[in-house]
């Protein structure tokens, strides 16, 4: 996912801003996590795709 799309991204549950931690990639994030401080929930980014499914619906 592109870093500059962070501005329109939100936690699927509380809709708050997410904090990005990039592990691989800079402008184009390949691996990393998105963290919602309010829900204390991590959403993984794998192979460039953020998994923003609600926590109880992830496989």
């Amino acid at each position: 996912m592109k870093r500059d799309l962070m501005d329109i991204l939100a936690c699927p549950m509380c809709k708050c801003d997410l904090e990005l931690e990039a592990v691989e990639g800079d402008e184009e994030i390949i691996t990393g996590t998105l963290y919602c401080a309010k829900c204390d929930e991590f959403y993984p980014i794998e192979e460039g795709i953020p998994n923003l499914l609600p926590p109880d619906f992830r496989r």
């Binding site: 991204l9 939100a10 936690c11 699927p12 959403y43 998994n51 619906f57």
Partner: peptide
């Protein structure tokens, strides 16, 4: 992005 349309991550 992977997400639910009932819980949009937007």
């Amino acid at each position: 992005r992977l997400g639910e349309i009932e819980n949009l991550p937007v």
